[in-house]
Computed example of a mutant assay.
Amino acid sequence: MAGVTGGDAAPVRVLIVDDDALVRAGLSMILGGVPDVRVVGEAADGAEVPAAVAAYAPDVVLMDIRMPRVDGLAATEALRALPRPPEVLVLTTFDADDQVLRALRAGAGGFLLKDTPPAEIVQAVRRVAAGEATLSPAVTRKLITHVTAAGPAGPDPRRERALRLLGGLTEREREVAVALGRGRTNAEISGELFMSVATVKAYVSRLLTKLELNNRVQVALLVHDAGLV
């Protein structure tokens, strides 16, 4: 995970993946003027992502969804299966519910729409590099709508799986997981649960290992699937 603040911290290395050359140029301009972020490469299709990641070693991949050969969702799934994958921040004009959920379940650390203001895109890159979830307000609303509309009439395998996994947590781990499900930051969890931010980070790392998940967004989705928030 790259350092994202501080004078001597290494800049966040970003790979931009989009089939529109103008979009790639615009994102490069936005991120190019930020001292703690460095655009290290570009790709025009999901099929080019594995080679680009191997060549440029990015910390964060800014990933479009709609691309002609391999879409961003398939590319994200492939990336997150790597032993040491970069973080993925999906940036798209397309925000259908199934696309949002598939991206997040695949391990994307964030999902933003392309009309997001430049300053917020920069901040999202920093947050994703630091392991923080980043969702645009529109995407968050869709996720909440999906969860609240998901009340099953019969057995729900996804809910049963989520309850089984979360049932193996300690009480404190479960409290942290539920806080993640509510979208809380590390600082907010620290204040709510009366523990240091460093301790919160340790709990989040423990949860990811114990639940075999890639990032805190997936923990949040698991908590939602279990119906705990």
Rank of each mutant, 00 (worst) to 15 (best):
L89A: 04
R69G: 07
A47E: 04
A43N: 00
V88F: 06
I65L: 15
A81Y: 06
D45F: 02
A57T: 15
V88I: 10
A44Y: 06
A52R: 11
P58I: 11
Y56L: 09
P50S: 10
A51R: 08
P50Y: 11
A51T: 09
V37E: 02
L79R: 07
P86F: 10
R69H: 12
L79E: 01
D45H: 04
G72S: 06
R66Q: 14
G41D: 01
V40I: 06
V40K: 07
V70P: 01
P85K: 13
P58M: 08
G46D: 01
L91N: 04
R80H: 13
G41F: 08
G41P: 01
V39P: 01
A52S: 09
L62H: 04
R66H: 13
A81I: 13
V61H: 03
P68E: 08
V37Q: 07
R80N: 12
V40E: 01
P35C: 11
V37R: 10
A52Q: 04
M67G: 05
E87D: 11
R80P: 03
V60N: 03
P50G: 09
A57N: 09
V40H: 05
P85M: 12
A51F: 03
P83T: 15
L82M: 15
R66C: 09
L89E: 00
P35E: 09
R80C: 13
R69Q: 12
V90Q: 01
Y56Q: 11
A81R: 15
L91Q: 03
E77T: 15
L79N: 05
T92D: 00
A47F: 03
E87H: 14
A78N: 07
M63D: 02
D71K: 08
E48R: 11
P35G: 09
G46R: 07
P68W: 12
R38K: 15
V53G: 02
R84I: 15
D64Q: 14
A47H: 07
G46P: 00
A57V: 14
A57L: 13
D64H: 14
G72C: 04
G72I: 03
L62N: 02
I65A: 13
